[in-house]
């Protein structure tokens, strides 16, 4: 918009560019159109990432299953890909993963539910504002630091109280994973509890319910699908957690029956094998993709179920 000193009343408006010229409009329109496409492409990248993950996992797993039958993979009780006598029973790794996940959930589910009810129904807003950031800080701690903490701080302490506890075990990493997923479970389930309308709480209070009764009989049932989703998301994280078990749970691939002993998990096996220098056409190299595919399918199922549950409770209120 030029301010021209030679302006007179008779100067046509287009001459001083108070009205955009056709060329300007066309350029602007072109930019708008281009940006729309550019932004769409950026959003499409996320789809490419998923496609890439599925492509890599499936194509390498297909090579693996050309040499090992799926039946053996699912039923064999030994996992010895780098030995002379090779066995590929994923149940061994899966049992370690499930054991550490179950221990984590045994910690995180009760503690998470209690904390979420406490924060959403009992704590004053000021208290809540102060506490939630600290919980977020736990979620920000690097997982390898939690691994160090499990192996070199907690395990020696636990060994004083539990005589049979091995240096590498599933119990302590399981507990640490439970603490790691706790903030996440609390935050998702507290969100669900706060989405329960206050009118329901007021109705309960009017009937003479105490806070705890309101929490347990009105809010928790009302937020049930959201709380379940929180548990599923926490479970998915526990299953996929890598560094804590890689540092503190040992590397022995066996059917995990005793939490006081160490055992490899799917994730810690992938780390263990990646550290070595295997030829990329060997069967042992392909195992990490078959193990990865198993892990992906497991977490995908949990995530999808949680997504569906969360969407449902959002629509409910």
């Amino acid at each position: 918009m030029a301010t021209d000193s030679t302006l007179t009343m008779s100067t046509p408006l287009t001459a001083v560019r108070l009205v955009p010229t056709d060329a300007f409009l066309r350029r602007r329109h072109l930019l708008d159109r281009t940006m729309r496409v550019v932004l769409f492409l950026a959003a499409a990248v996320s789809v490419l990432v998923t496609a890439g993950i599925i492509y890599v996992l499936v194509s390498e797993s297909v090579k693996f299953f050309a040499q090992v039958s799926i039946w053996d993979f699912l039923t064999d009780t030994q996992w010895t890909p780098v030995f002379q006598d090779k066995h590929f029973g994923i149940m061994t790794l899966l049992s370690g993963t499930l054991m550490s996940t179950l221990i984590a959930l045994a910690i995180a589910v009760p503690a998470g539910t209690i904390l979420a009810i406490y924060l959403s129904e009992f704590a004053r807003p000021r208290v809540r504002e102060v506490i939630k950031p600290f919980l977020e800080l736990i979620a920000g701690v690097p997982t390898v630091a939690f691994g160090y903490f499990a192996l070199l701080f907690l395990t020696p302490i636990f060994q004083k109280f539990i005589p049979g506890l091995a240096t590498f075990n599933l119990l302590v990493p399981g507990i640490v994973i439970g603490i790691m997923i706790l903030p996440y479970i609390v935050s998702v389930s507290e969100d669900a509890m706060r989405a329960v309308p206050d009118s329901l709480r007021e109705g309960a209070f009017a009937l003479g319910f105490t806070r705890l009764q309101t929490g347990l009989r009105v809010v928790v049932p009302g937020a049930f699908s959201g709380i379940t989703a929180a548990f599923l998301l926490g479970m998915s994280r526990a299953v996929g957690e890598t560094m804590v078990v890689a540092v503190a749970a040992g590397q022995q691939a066996k059917i995990a029956g005793n939490p006081l002993e160490g055992a490899a998990t799917i994730t810690s096996y992938i780390v263990q094998l990646s550290m070595g220098d295997l030829p990329h056409d060997s069967i042992a190299y392909l195992t990490i993709f078959a193990a990865g595919l198993t892990l992906f399918l497991l977490t995908f199922a949990f995530n999808l179920l949680a997504f569906w549950l969360r969407r449902r409770y959002r629509e409910a209120y």
Binding site: V47, V49, Y55, L57, L233, T242, L295, F300, N303, F307
Partner: peptide, 28 residues
């Protein structure tokens, strides 16, 4: 809808799976 569900799902994919993606796609 598809992109949104996809982003939600990606947020829950374990980090080691991204490592396998990089190993299979970028490195190999």
């Amino acid at each position: 809808d598809f992109i949104e569900i996809n982003v939600t799902n990606l947020a829950g994919v374990p980090s080691i799976i991204y490592g396998l993606l990089a190993l299979g796609l970028f490195v190999q």
